[in-house]
């Protein structure tokens, strides 16, 4: 179990590094899809099947396909590396990212993580009811307002995307 996790973790980091270093944006995108799949697997290991499913469906399936569409639409000769305008920026960026990483990692590596009180859904309950059923129940009871609002947000985004991307009539 643990070994599988480490494999997936290593693969996902590899995918992330691919995004960082691959030259061709399409390769970047495919590498990112790999990362998403790995993350989806880790979600399954964490008993979050629903999240894993939408991770694969929405992220790897929908969003990344959208990215690829756009890339293919635009990048006719855009695969070459652009000239860097400010090289010191690269070094600075590296240092800053390192700093942020150390801070975040230091959070849970320095000592034991202080977690709050346990919630009402231990693993047994989740397995008994089923994670999807639980999420569905919560979404349509406690989080119904957020759910409706997020629906409207999605609608607005769709309309906005159409309006923005539409070719202006000359």
């Amino acid at each position: 179990m643990l070994i599988i996790f480490y494999i997936f973790a290593a693969l996902s980091v590899l995918g992330g590094l691919g995004v960082l270093f691959l030259r061709n944006p399409i390769h970047c995108a495919l590498s990112l899809v790999g990362t998403f799949f790995c993350l989806g697997a880790i979600y399954v290991m964490l008993n979050a099947e629903f999240v894993a499913v939408i991770q694969v469906l929405v992220y790897a399936g929908a969003i990344m396909v959208l990215f690829l569409f756009v890339l293919m639409l635009l990048s006719s000769k855009d695969s070459e590396q652009y000239a860097n305008k400010w090289p010191i920026g690269k070094i600075l960026a590296g240092l800053l990212s390192l700093g942020i990483f150390i801070q975040i990692a230091g959070l849970f590596n320095a000592g034991e993580l202080q977690l709050g009180p346990k919630g009402a859904y231990p693993l047994e309950v989740v397995e008994e009811v089923g994670s999807i059923a639980l999420i569905g129940r919560l979404l349509f009871t406690d989080y119904i307002l957020s759910f409706e609002i997020i629906a409207i947000l999605l609608l607005v985004a769709v309309i906005g995307a159409v309006v923005i991307a539409k070719r202006r009539l000359q």
Binding site: L96, G99, I100
Partner: peptide, 12 residues
């Protein structure tokens, strides 16, 4: 970059 610098400082 500057945004990240700000994040870094806040975290710090």
């Amino acid at each position: 970059l500057i945004f990240t610098l700000g994040t870094f400082l806040i975290l710090w």
